[in-house]
Design a protein around this nucleic acid. Structure first.
Lengths: 136, 136
DNA sequence: ATGGGTGCAAATCCTTTGCATCTGC
DNA sequence: GCAGATGCAAAGGATTTGCACCCAT
């Protein structure tokens, strides 16, 4: 699979694998430039798209925030901060009955590929920030 | 709550309540213009943002698609079409143990406000389209 | 006359595209 | 020399902002 990737694509994939914070394209670009100073932002976007098409990475989004990329290919859930837009992996399995999901998919007519549980709220950083603000 | 809204904001809210397809800002604009031909797109965006801040509507997104707005305030789940970006309500309750969710939230440090189950796949329209394409 | 709300246009941000160039074969 | 990949800049689409204007107080 990965053997078909060229050096730029491999570098992008490596950045994504090393960074579990679901970086945006711009953040990937900033990091990948350390390894490949010549690379352009457009190339990063092109590679991200190709990797996503080949299902080697996932693209997540939330509201009108910019897209975030994720090299983690096993199914997992997310916590989204409604304040700063951060997208955090949920490190535990949220159990959900397969029958329930199938029923829901059938009810919408969708041909289910995967699913995700999303928890919305304020992340630790934002909680800390508003605590600090309250003290001033 | 709604009594503080002016005529434009009420018209936007009405469009959202009448349209369960989670329209984009542009789509809201197109529809609201029937009732208020003078309104500008920027005003629609301003109102959508205010309504969201006041938690009277919700904003949903997926990848780098444009944001979609939802006047439905009770908790519910979504089916996202990975092909055309459509966002469909799941009309049945997907049961999820509260204890499971709490555990997940604690594991990420997030202060949980709400949650959502997302089913990804191809919607009926897109299924039909590729069936048609296969015949040609 | 004052202030908030508004339309319009310009600005901004994110992402994609066009095109000339470069690279490895 | 050719095909595919790339950098750069320009284009495109979504969203926000600046600003002058208008309306109700």
């Amino acid at each position: 699979m990965e053997d078909i990737l060229n050096a730029n694509a491999r570098a992008v994939l490596e950045v994504l694998r090393a960074n579990t914070r679901h970086p945006t394209a711009q953040e990937v670009y900033d990091e990948v430039r350390r390894a490949r100073p010549h690379i352009g932002l457009a190339t990063v976007y092109r590679i991200l798209r190709q990797l996503a098409e080949q299902k080697m990475i996932k693209v997540w989004g939330y509201g009108s925030e910019s897209a975030r990329y994720d090299a983690c290919t096993h199914r997992h859930d997310h916590a989204c901060c409604t304040e700063c837009g951060a997208l955090l992996d949920v490190p535990v399995e949220v159990v959900l009955s397969h029958a329930e999901l199938e029923k829901a998919a059938r009810a919408t007519g969708i041909e289910m590929g995967s699913h995700e549980v999303r928890i919305y709220g304020r992340c630790q950083d934002c909680q800390a920030k508003s605590k600090k603000a309250r003290l001033t």
